[in-house]
Amino acid sequence: MRAVFSLAVVIILVLIAQVGAGSAGMRYLLGVIIPYIAMAVFLIGMVYRVIKWARSPVPFRIPVTCGQEKSLPWIKSSKLDNPHTTLGVIGRMALEILCFRSLFRNTKTELRKGPTLTYGSSKYLWLGALVFHWSFLIIFIRHFKYFTEPIPSFVLLAQNLDGFFQVGLPIVYITDILILVALTYLLFRRLLDAKLRYISLAGDYIPLFLIGGIAVTGVLMRYFTKTDIVAVKQLAIGLVTFSPVGADVLGQISSIFFIHIFLVSVLFIYFPFSKLVHLGGVFLSPTRNLANNNRMERHVNPWDYPVKVHTYEEWEDEFRDVMKAAGLPLDKE
């Protein structure tokens, strides 16, 4: 139900763009005005989010430790899974963000024995997530070629690596295939696993369909329906140099491009209001980004306040007689 709703939302978005691409005025809206709005909403929204997170202090240092602590010199501590130095924390965060360490853990021990079904499937979650996020990143970087002139070398490098196998004409990017496969997997995983279906909200399906729509329109443009790349680049450069192109250039671009850019814009607008903010939040998670040096260095709670305690004096006053009888030492006789 929630999946159908989400799919419907994305289809409506596609239709809006499809219809809009038909008129010159709407083209300007879809190709220039909405992308600007989207960028503004995304940037302001994300900054607002991060500030909001960061403004809540971290009163206690509560890392979740996943390995041996640093204690006696002859016991080997786990520097990445239970870091006690800043360097270790950076390593732990890097493993988490670049390699999805925790998701990988899912499978680590279960591979050892027995039938394979679930070990496979929990490993697939790690693999699916990793393939999806990395493909997304590489595709994102590849798109810099539209916004820059001359094209920076790292963009060309990403592009060359991505097209490494030199298959097809135009050359097929591996990430184009991988992202579609990964999205399909992540979607079907949600739909077919009863547990996941139960916990999934509309907000879990919308990004999948939205990004799916973006990927499909992108693939269609590159491999099937030709688009005037030169015009697209003119549009893109115009956007980043704040000198947007006019109706003449917009008129040369095929309508599918407007669906693509509209969905991208919607994704950017949607981003700060959705679970997609995990992009920023993962860096701020106190169970992962703090060193387990709790007994080595004092952590200060900025809002600490005095509390009512039961002092020794009050306590001795209450129990003096029984303590005396039991021969326990007293501060006051």
Binding site: E110, K113, G114, P115, L117, T118, Y119, S121, D193, A194, K195, R197, Y198
Partner: peptide, 12 residues
């Protein structure tokens, strides 16, 4: 039903 899937599939 949401647990049933887990019970049936997880073989560890």
């Amino acid at each position: 039903s949401d647990s049933a899937g887990f019970l049936a599939k997880q073989k560890d």
